[in-house]
Design a protein around this nucleic acid. Structure first.
Lengths: 192, 192
DNA sequence: TCGATTGTCTAGCGGTGCTAGGATCGAATC
DNA sequence: GATTCGATCCTAGCACCGCTAGACAATCGA
């Protein structure tokens, strides 16, 4: 029995290696460079091994996305818990969100830009994604304002953050004014 | 001389055909289905002909994006000019923007999600893109509020719209509440 | 020790974007 | 009108992609 357990441990370890390597490669050279051949070479196995862990490249992207969602939730909660007062908290949340997207562009892409085969806004949405949204909701729900549904408000605020993150990174928005846009966003959207 | 002119006309016509066909194919089956082979087959020429008009697939996407930007600018101006009063105008603008993105998902992707090799937020940004932003600025500039730079405000509002458009279409936001999110966005961001 | 099972690899399929080089066609010249 | 010659277009092929069938070796249970 212990032999089987060891094998399962090794297998799980290799799966983590695949996901970590895919993420690393994507952050270094972009997702276009993450081909099954290169990925296989980096983990020092042949290509078909990848398919014994994942159905295909899409699922690998999905795995990176889930890992990213867990990290993002942690990052957001850490940022908000260190702030007191609604306004400071919301600003810290927004900065943390945009900072995460900027520091982990490939992970952010896996979560929101690429097709990782994940369900969203659905009952069978994976837990890490629901939790990341939950982290937003915890802080934003209390500044939604009277008569405004907290979930709806969070969705809008999130969309604004997402727009800022993607447009800034794609070079569509000048990056110098990022901080001023955040302040304006918090000032206007949040009811303080 | 007239022979040469005829040839140039034919050449220009074929170039328009390529762009229109690429757009059509992308709207019908998604950008993944727009391969150089399929595109060549549809226009009834061989693959290399595409490369005598464009450097590569990226430039074709870019051409669709520019065409889309011109259309979007027209759409936005038409929507706002039919509305009187700042509030009505801003709401009409937001609805028109999201409607355009919903009706032309492939074109919207070409403009903002895919790499069309276009410059942004730059001095050598193509005119149609600057003009589309200008169409936003015309309406949004007058509701930026005192002491807020109109351009900065427009960037923020645009980012929010972009976030709503992309997250909604990717299934990340429930599409039923779209209208309520627009109203909340206008209520909060615009200074009326 | 031997058969069965599991795990991994080599090789290859049909597809991609892109290009070199030859064929063809039409315009200009004699 | 025949002939040259340059522009135009196509066939064929490159290297790479995601993915998989089938051979092979290592390991396990009897």
């Amino acid at each position: 029995m212990s032999v089987q357990e060891r094998k399962e441990r090794e297998r799980a370890g290799r799966e983590r290696l695949i996901v970590a390597t895919a993420r690393e490669l994507a952050e270094q050279q972009g997702w276009d460079a993450v081909t099954t051949r290169r990925l296989a070479e980096r983990i020092e196995y042949s290509q078909p091994v990848l398919y014994s862990h994942f159905r295909g490249k899409r699922e690998i992207i999905g795995a990176v996305a889930l890992e990213g969602a867990t990290e993002m939730a942690t990052t957001l909660r850490a940022a908000t818990s260190a702030a007191d007062g609604p306004r400071t908290r919301v600003t810290a949340l927004a900065r943390a969100y945009l900072g995460f997207a900027e520091r982990n562009p490939a992970v952010y892409d896996a979560m929101f830009q690429l097709d990782g085969g994940l369900a969203f806004a659905d009952e069978d949405t994976p837990e890490p994604l629901k939790d990341a949204f939950g982290a937003l909701l915890e802080t934003l729900g209390e500044v939604a304002g009277d008569g405004v549904h907290p979930g709806l408000f969070t969705e809008l605020f999130w969309a604004a953050l997402h727009g800022l993150a993607t447009l800034t990174r794609a070079g569509r928005l000048p990056s110098g004014d990022a901080e001023r846009r955040v302040e304006l966003l918090v000032d206007r959207l949040a009811m303080l």
